[in-house]
Design a binder for these strands. Structure first.
Length: 423
RNA sequence: GCGGGUGUAGCUCAGUCGGUUAGAGCGCCAGUUUGUGGCACUGGAGGUCGCCGGUUCAAUCCCGGUCACUCGCCCCA
């Protein structure tokens, strides 16, 4: 192909792609607004510490996946690989900790230096919500319910399974981690190479290894749920009771873990099998330790992020809006009249296209291909007589209408529900 | 970062056991129709066969590298 190609792992959002993208974002924005989440945005780059401090050196996201560079002023900058840290940073920076709780919705690009695959890009886009302040498990339930509603609204909930686990609070998790390392240490030689690395760096990750040998060892490993203290158990029980009450189906997944240190209690992912290896379509959890790790006050938080590209691939929807009608000049001398009429119709609230190239046959052909169903045709004769030809391209009918009566005539045949859409 | 597959027209793909002008369908443009689209017919444009190098009298085809896409690992959205 041409040498003029986008950078690896990036892609253009042409109108047809943008339609699916907007379909996801618009629905997510509306659904989260039903729960009181308000839209905000943070910069797409931050000082590197915003990500390196909370994510830690053990995380793949930081060690090998970030786009980091030094700017002209010598500052170390990182393109955001996710948005939770940025949102929490914004909360601290903006002094918003005085008005808890906070409910935020965001949508925007994220950047990870990964090997691209289907559903995995170096620049990709996420929607997400963050609920800052509450420690109660009902907050966890509410954000999961919100996530389920987003998926339902775009028509993909029935293609996903909600996997749910509890990591417990810090005390529980540290106790479990010690037990797990103790057990796995006895089997180290039999572990896969990847898992040998993880044993030192991030042992919980071994739990969801896909290696067959690892899985055999894991089968007899100590279980996370056996190490939850009473408070952690209560948190999880409250959450699951709330989900059950709302008829939100979930599946307990004891192997679902999050690598990052600030995660605690709830971890969940909506997973589909329709997208190959990139099955997680929306995932998140509780991150009570994050604010403190960033140097702010101890403020709890729960949230999730969803991959817009992955969601758009699952969703059939996505409509490209096209104008409702077009004004066609039948001859060159009528161009100015057609232009003026198009403006008048736009003043009246219609979406109007005005084809300008070629003879009348070409213009009509363009309308047809664009999916425009109504043509207002005017030539010298019509201008003189103060009328237009109103042609319906769907059924081929055509009527002469007085210009004074055009707006009301159009109003009766074009629904005012909104833009005409066609895909 | 690791392993496998693929790369021929805008799109989906044939094809050349290495040999003169590389094909099809769809799409695009034009005409049949100089005030009327869809259908049909006719014609046309469009490819350095991803890129660089090697072997060869000769490479789109074989070999190496590279880039991109793709499948899996890793990790996650």
């Amino acid at each position: 192909m041409s040498k003029l190609q986008p950078v690896r792992g990036t892609s253009d959002l042409l109108p047809v792609d943008m339609a699916g993208h907007r379909f996801v974002v618009d629905n997510a924005r509306n659904a989260s607004a039903q729960y009181g989440f308000q839209e905000m945005a943070t910069p797409i780059f931050e000082f590197t510490e915003v990500f390196s401090k909370p994510l830690g050196t053990s995380s793949d996201v930081v060690t090998k996946e970030t786009y980091s560079f030094e700017d002209r002023g010598g500052e170390r900058i990182t393109l955001r690989p996710e948005n939770t840290a940025g949102v929490v940073r914004a909360m601290i920076s903006g002094g918003l900790t005085q008005s808890l709780p906070l409910k935020f919705f965001y949508a925007g690009p994220m950047f990870r230096y990964e090997r691209p695959q289907k559903g995995r890009m170096r620049q990709f886009h996420q929607i997400g919500i963050e609920y800052l302040g509450p420690t109660d498990a009902l907050a966890d339930a509410e954000i999961i319910a919100c996530g389920a509603r987003v998926l339902a609204d775009i028509g993909v909930l029935d293609k996903c399974v909600l996997h749910l686990n509890s990591l417990g609070d810090t005390e529980s998790r540290l106790a479990y981690r010690a037990a797990l390392v103790d057990y796995l240490g006895g089997h180290e030689a039999a572990l896969s190479d990847d898992s040998k690395q993880r044993l030192a760096v991030n042992p919980l990750r071994i739990l969801d290894s896909k290696d067959a040998g690892d899985r055999a060892i894991i089968a007899d490993a100590p279980r996370l749920q056996d190490h939850l203290n009473d408070q952690s158990k209560a948190h999880f029980a409250t959450l699951t009771a709330a989900l059950d009450a709302a008829s939100i189906a979930w599946k307990f997944d004891p192997l679902l873990v999050r690598g990052l240190d600030y995660y605690c209690h709830t971890a969940f992912e909506f997973i589909t099998d329709a997208l190959g290896a990139q099955g997680t379509v929306l995932g998140g959890g509780r991150y009570d330790g994050l604010s403190e790790m960033l140097g702010g006050p101890a403020i709890a938080g729960v949230g999730w992020a969803g991959g817009i590209e992955r969601l758009a691939m699952l969703a059939a929807g996505g409509m490209v809006a096209v104008p409702q009608l077009a004004v066609v000049a039948a001859d060159n001398d009528s161009d100015q009249h057609a232009f003026k009429l198009a403006e008048q119709l736009r003043d009246a609230g219609f979406s109007v296209d005005l084809p300008t190239a070629g003879n009348m046959g070409k213009k009509m052909k363009k309308l047809d291909k664009a999916g425009i169903n109504i043509a207002v045709i005017m030539g010298g004769d019509e201008v003189e007589r103060g009328v237009v030809q109103l042609r319906n391209l769907s059924d081929g009918s055509q009527d002469e209408v007085a210009r004074d009566a055009l707006v009301s005539a159009l109003s009766s045949i074009i629904s005012h529900a909104g833009n005409n859409v066609d895909q």
